[in-house]
């Protein structure tokens, strides 16, 4: 399997749900036997995963929002999404 690329369109894998948990006051990523509590950077990325935007689109939006160098953001976003792809939480 090749790693996530900037032109890929990420989406949550089948059976994976990303939602805000009122009890904990934070975002959670749920699948049948796994639960993770993404940190704030990951949450910012995952909130933009909609099955339509490319990784490059997401990185560009975040670079604008945080006024950060686009290249650096893109590398971070790719690494994070590729990690979730390897775990089967994110597909493309």
């Amino acid at each position: 399997m090749t790693a996530m690329a900037s032109g890929d369109v990420p989406r949550f894998a089948r059976g994976v749900r990303f939602r805000f948990d009122e009890v904990r006051g934070r975002w959670v990523l749920l699948s049948p036997e796994h639960l993770s509590l993404p940190d704030e950077h990951a949450v910012a990325v995952l909130q933009l995963v909609d099955g339509e935007r490319t990784v490059a689109d997401i990185a560009e939006m975040l670079a604008r929002r945080f006024e950060a160098p686009a290249g650096m953001i893109l590398a971070d976003v790719l690494a994070m999404l590729d990690g979730l792809r390897a775990q089967g939480r994110v597909a493309r």
Partner: peptide, 8 residues
């Protein structure tokens, strides 16, 4: 359960 913090 949901109010207690159960997610799955």
């Amino acid at each position: 359960a949901a109010a207690l913090g159960v997610l799955q």
